[in-house]
Amino acid sequence: MNEEEIIEKLQKFGLTKYESLAYITLLKIGPSKATDITKESGIPHTRVYDVLSSLHRKGFVDIMQGTPRLYKPVNPELVLEKIKEETINNIKVLKELFLELYRSAHGEDLPEIWTIHGFENTLERAEYIIRSAKHEVLINTPFEFLKLLKDEIRRRKDIIFVIISNFDEVPEWLNRDNIILAKSGGAPWLMASWIIGDIEYALFFGALPKDKRREKFYSFWGKSAKLIQNYMHWFYTMYLDNSTVVKPINYNKIKKPLSLTNIRTLITVLKQTSLPKEIEVIGRLVETKEEVTLKGQVVSHEYTPLTASIVLKDKNGKEWKIGGLGSYFEDVEGERFILLE
């Protein structure tokens, strides 16, 4: 990456061109006088003091008092971490403000399902789901569409993929340790497309469009934990259970701890390794809704179209029956499942 690209990216974080140039110069030459910064960077002498003062206020530069006064660049890792924290906090605040704005205008919460118009917009949403997922992505789609997600899938080595498609052979880019791959059954309805990320986002659409109809294509975008919980259930009971697993994950090579949000994903992974397995479960007691964190070993699991659960034995030998979100037969409603070994 050249300096022009770095300056362009720094400007996206609120620095001016001169401020970006001054910070880069200081990183190269170290603590310096304003005159040296001017000489090295080409920033006009009449502007350099204002630029350095602004960088100091923004946390990019420390001022070392003395004669002459020196300007020192703040460690880039510290600067970027601060920007990251501020950006995340700003996003959280904006989300709340947007929700309040929508409620005040419409008298209700944001809709749980949105209609997405256009094939390219649908593809962008599918890519976003893969980029933003923290734990797992479930995909059921024709290989024609799956190939369009190739680059995003290859970048994510830190999450679990469960992918169902109608491929003939397993391509190299899907032959990865963190991917469970299944070949879909013959029924046409099995090729409706679902792309689901954690319990956060879901995208659904039917048949792929012909080229001439791409601008008229539409899909459905969901962001509701209750809805997505049902989508995940359908993904497994309608699609995966009617498909043939042709490539399991390579459990021993996957980095631990491994965090998952869906009980059926957890059991699908456990089926491809041996028990017992050390696990931590974060969830709520079904009876009281009290938050609970349990550690122990998975000693068994149950998986049917109607129920999915594991049995966790804690260090005291007590056995807990744990299900997923919406559980009512089990002892614990699991929200996060963390495999430790």
Rank of each mutant, 00 (worst) to 15 (best):
E4K: 15
I6Y: 13
E8A: 14
K9S: 14
F13P: 00
S20G: 15
L21Q: 11
T25C: 05
S32V: 01
E40H: 06
T46C: 02
S53W: 08
L55G: 08
F60I: 03
Q65R: 14
G66Q: 03
T67R: 13
T67C: 03
P68A: 04
L70T: 04
P73T: 05
K82M: 15
E85C: 00
E86P: 07
V93L: 15
V93W: 11
E96V: 05
E96C: 02
S104H: 12
H106W: 12
E108R: 14
D109T: 11
E112T: 12
H117F: 12
F119W: 15
N121P: 01
R125T: 10
S132Y: 11
V137A: 02
L138K: 06
P142D: 10
F145A: 08
K147S: 13
K147R: 14
L148N: 09
L148E: 15
E152Y: 05
R154Y: 02
F161P: 02
V162K: 06
E169F: 10
W173I: 02
W173K: 06
W173N: 01
L174N: 04
D177M: 05
L181P: 06
S184A: 15
G185R: 12
G197P: 07
E200I: 09
D211A: 10
R214G: 07
K216D: 15
F220A: 10
G222C: 12
K223C: 12
S224T: 05
K226N: 12
Q229K: 14
M238G: 12
Y239Q: 13
D241P: 07
S243I: 10
K253L: 03
K255P: 02
T261A: 10
T268E: 15
L275G: 04
P276Y: 03
K277N: 03
I279W: 04
E280T: 10
E280R: 13
V281N: 03
V281S: 05
V286D: 00
E287S: 11
T293V: 12
H301E: 11
L306A: 14
T307V: 11
K313T: 06
K318G: 06
K321L: 09
I322T: 05
G326L: 01
D331Q: 06
V332G: 03
E335H: 15
F337S: 07
L339D: 02
E341G: 08
